[in-house]
């Protein structure tokens, strides 16, 4: 059995399928560099759409927070109810705001 070594790096792919929308994470692929990753992303993730925008980022470059460490990193949203529209009671005729 040959020794299989993977020399291709992992890239995350984000696609904006239509103008006005955000880029969405759609998956990942292996490529040698950013240019190749973009080309493959076009073939692998946008076979059914035209005029999209593709971002590729090396997976290793993505920094993320760990959800369960939330305490110090995020506000506890539930102690500031005045941030939410439902906090405010308005007369019926104008309640559609």
């Amino acid at each position: 059995m040959t020794n299989i070594t993977e020399k291709l790096e992992l890239f995350e792919v984000f696609v904006r399928s239509k103008r006005g929308l955000d880029h969405k994470h759609v998956g990942s692929l292996h490529a040698e560099d950013h240019e190749q990753a973009l080309e493959y992303a076009r073939d692998c993730y946008t076979r059914r759409s035209e005029g999209v925008s593709i971002w590729v980022v090396k997976s290793a470059d993505i920094c993320s927070s760990q959800e369960d460490d939330a305490d110090c990193f995020y506000d506890p949203n539930d102690d500031k109810p005045y941030r939410h529209a439902t906090y405010y009671v308005l007369p019926d005729p104008v309640n559609n705001m």
Partner: peptide
Amino acid sequence: AGHGLYLYSACETLGISRSEMIE
């Protein structure tokens, strides 16, 4: 092939590489 790719991609998030899976 593309579906294989999406799934390898999902699997790599669990800490296994494409290389290992091919092996």
